[in-house]
Every structure is written in C-alpha cells, then in structure tokens.
Computed example of a mutant assay.
Amino acid sequence: MERITIDVVSDVVCPWCYLGKARLELAIAEVQDEVGVTVNWRPYRLDPDATSDGTDYRSHLIAKFGGAERLDQMQDTLREHGREIGVNFQFENIKVRANTLDAHRLLHWARIEGNELQDRVATALFKAHFEDGLNIADHGVLVQIGEASGLDPAVIGALLASDADKDTVLEEIESAQKMGVNGVPFLIFDGQYAVSGAREPDVVASALRDIANMKAEARKGMI
C-alpha cells in the first residue's frame, strides 16, 4: 500500500476549512484499504489583524462581505453543506473575532506529539469556535482544549505565556504565501500536488488514488 502525506494549510476560524476537514475525513475513509494517509495541519491566518482579546465577530464580517444579507446567505449555505456531513455550524454563538496565532502554536506543539493528537486538537479548535462560540485566542480555552486532547495543561499554559514558537508559526505562514497559497483550505499531497478549497470527498479520494498509482508506477520503474 502506498502512503501519502497531506499538508493541510488552514485557519481554525475558516468555516470552509472546518467543512474541508470533514470532507477530507470521508475521503480518507473511502480509500483506507487502498492508500495510507498521514495528515499534517499547517498554519494560515485569514485575519492577522484580529486582537488577542477579540473584537465583535458579526460586525467585522458584515463589513468584510458587504452587508448583513450577503453574510447571512453565505452562512446559510455553509450550514446546509455542514448538515450533509455532520458539521453543526452555530454562527450565532460566535461573539469574538479572535486572533489565531496562539491556536496555531497549540497545533504546532500537538504535531510534535503525533499526527493523531494534532488532528484531535484541530477538531476541538474548530468545534470550540464554530459550534460552542468560544474565544480560541483565550489561553484558558486553549489549555482546556489541549488537556482534553491529551496534552499536559501545565506545559501548554507555560508555553502560551511565553513567545515560544511564534516565529516558527509565522515563518510557516510566510512560506505558504510564497508558495502561492492565498486562500484556505489548501491541500498539498506529498509536497508536490495541490488541491485548493473544501473539495467534495470523491474529488479528494480520486486525487489520492491517482497519486498512489503514480507512486506505484514510479516504484516499478526503479526496479
């Protein structure tokens, strides 16, 4: 069985990224007997100007998207897509426009402990923001998410109180932008092939099969 690594460039306040995560999981489940998949969550910030204590979420989006009616239409579309695959968007619960740098630091530390743990943290961050309306810039919230996912809360609290790995996360974001990433989610397969957007599971599954077949053929040519 061929193995493929997917680097998912995303932001945890991006609704299409939450939708894309659920779709990616369905795609991986579809090919689990054909292709082995490792997923790394990579940082991106859609709203780097957001503050650590947060400002009003809805007012910001109304201004960004040109009115309440347009925003409501977009969010209704996301709710509909989410219901199809078990994502329960609760936009009305979100009060804070949160800076996500510290959330990405938490994901970085989780990845050091393993991909599965990082994936749990990613899911918890998306759920905390989009379903529970929690401020994911708040260190107390991040410590709780880390602990519930399997990280040491004392260690995470101490790291968050410092500047540990801020530069690392910002450098990763800059590298993604230099690669041409200007929107998320953005999936990079084996560092060579890319798919942008929250694609349907069958599209991602097909890409995984195609890349696995190419790797298998290349391996045969080396024998």
Rank of each mutant, 00 (worst) to 15 (best):
D76K: 14
S162A: 10
A218V: 10
D119A: 14
H129M: 05
E30I: 08
A194Q: 11
Y193A: 09
R45Y: 03
D76Q: 15
V12G: 03
A154F: 07
I223M: 14
R199T: 11
D47A: 04
L19P: 01
V204Y: 00
D33N: 10
S206C: 11
I173L: 01
C17M: 03
L24P: 03
P201A: 01
V143A: 05
D72L: 03
I62N: 09
W16V: 11
D152R: 08
S175K: 10
L46Y: 08
V8F: 06
V203P: 13
V141Q: 00
R58D: 03
G140W: 13
E92W: 07
E200M: 14
R111K: 12
T5W: 02
V143C: 13
N40E: 07
A207E: 05
R58N: 07
V121M: 10
D167V: 12
M222L: 13
A216L: 07
L160C: 04
C17P: 14
Y57S: 00
A27C: 05
G36M: 15
G114D: 03
Q177H: 06
V184P: 00
M214L: 15
V195K: 07
F186T: 02
G157F: 02
P201I: 00
P153V: 11
R111Q: 11
R45W: 08
G67M: 11
D119Q: 13
S196L: 09
I4S: 01
Y193K: 09
E92R: 06
A161Y: 09
R199A: 09
D202H: 15
I112C: 10
D210M: 15
L187Y: 08
V203I: 14
E172D: 14
D210F: 15
R83P: 01
R219N: 14
I145L: 10
T100E: 08
G82K: 10
E116P: 05
A205E: 07
N40C: 14
A176V: 04
S52M: 12
V155W: 08
R3D: 05
K220Y: 14
E25H: 14
T100R: 06
D49A: 10
D76C: 08
E92G: 11
